[in-house]
Design a protein around this nucleic acid. Structure first.
Length: 301
DNA sequence: CACTTGACCTGTCCGC
DNA sequence: TGCGGACAGGTCAAGT
């Protein structure tokens, strides 16, 4: 579910909430969500202080002391939600300030798979809930080296929002996939890291490119438009606090608003915001794919 | 090599 | 109201 903007939104919120806090315990309600050598938890997790929260593509990395990390993949329906013990934070009890934004209530609930208990620098008590309706997500306790050696991490392509990711880098990535369709390439995490189904559709609409276009058919101008469109779509997603069509929430349990601004995703049958034509939905790269047939003409036609 | 399908799971929505 | 099927933002393995 969560793509780069959603994971980045969680990362920012979580980093400010739990940096400097101590992990005091963990309870695995669904052991498959947190497969770990039981020897490692007491040695490298219990009592450890959180150094910060990072992100690589769609992977959250909670850095602990001495080079250990909790790597968290939310997959389709994962949530990582921080809750401070009631009464410890006057006025900030869940839902108090923004009931219309809230999506989840009491925790743990039936989707809760893992619960970390935390202690704050001033003696506060809180819990970090890993909720995951579909149980696809996972958390692993890994040292820095093991994290880098994960196949999932080793094969990741460049981060599209990094200042160092240039148009030339993008052209090089595309050149290695000239036979493929552009939507499949955008979803390929070894091409560019962090794009998922929503932002792929949005970027292709912004650039005026049909998702089934072969990469080799994109001329220099189209490549440049798409480079800008990918970055703009992802940045817009972050600015909106992510997108919530189903159950994405940030670290404090709030929905994102990006889908209110989306041009094509989830809008089939509605009018294109640019030309008024009806948005259609097709299947590309095995995924539901939304596009404007006028703004994104089929290359086969 | 490129593409599709199925698997992992649970929940929701839509049509009958 | 109930029931079956399709579908859901991600990845991975296996098959064509």
């Amino acid at each position: 579910m969560p793509e780069l903007p959603e994971v980045e939104t969680v990362r920012r919120g979580l980093d400010s909430l739990i940096r400097g806090w101590q992990v005091t315990g963990v309870e695995a309600l669904n052991p498959k969500s947190f497969p770990v050598d039981p020897d490692l938890v007491p040695r490298h997790l219990a009592g450890r202080t959180i150094q910060g929260v990072g992100r690589r593509a769609k992977l959250l990395v909670i850095a602990l002391e001495q080079g250990w990390n909790l790597a968290v993949h939310l997959k389709m329906t994962g949530q990582l939600v921080f809750r401070e013990a009631a009464g410890m934070q006057p006025g900030r009890e869940f839902g108090a300030g923004h009931p219309s934004d809230s999506l989840i209530g009491r925790l743990p609930d039936r989707s809760t798979r893992i619960v970390f208990s935390l202690a704050g620098p001033a003696g506060q008590t809180a819990w970090l809930y890993f909720n995951d309706q579909r149980k696809f997500g996972w958390i692993k306790l890994l040292d820095d080296q093991a994290l880098e050696e994960l196949d999932f991490v080793r094969t990741l392509g460049p981060e599209p929002l990094d200042a160092g990711f240039t148009l030339e880098d993008f052209r090089l990535q595309l050149a290695r996939r000239s036979g493929r369709r552009i939507k499949a390439s955008l979803l390929d995490q070894s091409c560019i890291a962090g794009i998922g189904n929503i932002y792929a559709d949005e970027a292709l609409w912004l650039a005026g490119i049909h998702p089934e276009t072969r990469v080799a058919q994109l001329d220099a101008a189209a490549q440049e438009r798409l480079y800008g469109a990918v970055r703009a779509a992802l940045q817009a997603g972050i600015d909106a606090g992510g997108s919530s069509s189903r159950n994405y929430v940030d670290a404090e349990g709030r929905r994102g608003t990006y889908l209110d601004f989306a041009a094509v995703y989830g809008r089939s049958g509605q009018a294109c915001r640019r030309c008024g034509q009806q948005i259609i939905k097709i299947r590309s790269a095995g995924r539901g794919t939304h596009l404007c047939p006028a703004c994104q003409p089929d290359p086969a036609c």
